[in-house]
Design a protein around this nucleic acid. Structure first.
Lengths: 234, 234
DNA sequence: AGACATTTTTGAACGCGTTCAAAAAGCTCG
DNA sequence: CGAGCTTTTTGAACGCGTTCAAAAATGTCT
């Protein structure tokens, strides 16, 4: 994005450029939708596109955000109907797949956007996270109280891993990732239930602490402090 | 790679090209080591480089393989000294980090190579896997018998996830990934120990089954068959 | 030796993402 | 109006990864 236009006409141009790009992506695919093609289709010069978007990746990021938002709209209601956690997890997975499938060839580009963005403070992560929050809070029976508040973060991380498998999945129609997600849903749900047991619960705590130690929030803390968050094992 | 030269001179040229590329990578970094620069430094024309290597990514893949091999050499002996599993895991992590650190800017390129390669049948995965096999079989006390044979595969997958965090880690000197790996070692070891308990053990089995369902081995099997490998949860 | 087939090597080109200096248009005051 | 500012728009260029047809070198067989 990089620039927000001062004038109305500027905003319109930027919007038109973005819409053209998205259309072009859908119609022609990633490689064929060069910046030159997009600019031409939007009726502006190549360099003008760069006035509004600092890179092609910038536009891809918007596409990804759009898709996630559509996924959110598409399955938000289903998550509130008192189904099991497993079925809610599955709902998020399948809605994601159906929204993303037409853009599977964007996989690597999507992943790059996802991984290079700040994992805490960005709109995309917020949408993803709110999906998992709904999936957890709308599940009946509710997951164990002790982990209820941490579960969305955990699921959100899990889904990123699955997404990265999907992104490079070369099997026909991404059969393998579809299968993987189908199988992951019950396992994750089972894990949540087993967290009632102290042993499993403490494992979950360890994993959560790991996730924190890998997040950018800790960037200004020193090593000693952070380390103490992870209980020694042996 | 793509072509194996018929004549001796051809092989020499290819070898020189590869060595030049690797030197260039080390000296100038990823972006600065363009195919043109590499070819020029090796004293051949640009298009000739493409006669021996089908793409720049091809060469990056060789670099990655070289680094993994060096990591293997560097820590193989340490894994056989009867240390704990935790310390062996840590040894693999830290040797990996020290070998890779100078090439951190290659992270995204490395990851692309790693993810787009066939995860079963390629040399790189074989080297990685054998590292984890040594880490497990050389650990004292040995991990529970029931999971001992599956543990290397699990650790291998885990390390890929950590690698992908490292690849995009923007913190100074990759502090965050270093910290993450440091913390992951004891947790993984603890997990292995807890696998003596039936509950944890069955969770491990589920996760392992997941990994299989995401692998390419199953590509020719039908959905029904594969699905039955994962026990229903709820 | 000379003709032929194969392997190696080249130069020129293509389209790509990106950058930049400068032109054009719009806006704000006297 | 028009001088001086900011915002928008452009054309031309750069270096990149990659491709290709064709030249040069090499090897093989009679």
């Amino acid at each position: 994005m990089t620039i927000q236009p001062r004038t109305l006409k500027g905003q319109e141009t930027q919007a038109k450029l973005l819409q053209t790009a998205l259309d072009c992506f859908a119609a022609e695919g990633y490689k064929a939708s060069s910046m030159r093609v997009i600019a031409a289709r939007a009726g502006v010069s190549l360099s003008h596109a760069y006035y509004y978007f600092s890179s092609k990746e910038d536009i891809v990021a918007r596409l990804l955000l759009n898709l996630r938002t559509e996924q959110f709209e598409r399955c938000r209601s289903a998550l509130d109907e008192g189904n099991t956690l497993e079925s809610n997890i599955r709902a998020v997975f399948t809605s994601g797949l159906s929204v993303m499938q037409p853009y599977h060839e964007f996989g690597p580009a999507f992943l790059k956007v996802l991984l290079s963005q700040d994992q805490v403070d960005n709109e995309l992560s917020a949408v993803e996270f709110s999906l998992w929050e709904k999936a957890v809070s709308g599940a009946r029976p509710l997951p164990p109280l002790g982990i209820r508040s941490d579960l969305p973060k955990f699921l959100s991380l899990l889904s990123r891993q699955l997404f990265s498998v999907w992104a490079y999945d070369q099997s026909a129609n991404q059969r393998r990732s579809l299968l993987l997600m189908d199988n992951a849903a019950p396992v994750a749900a089972k894990f949540a239930v087993l967290c009632r047991l102290p042993v499993v619960r403490s494992l979950f705590a360890d994993v959560l602490a790991l996730m924190d130690s890998g997040s950018s929030v800790q960037d200004h803390q020193d090593r000693q402090t952070t380390r103490s968050k992870v209980p020694k094992a042996s």
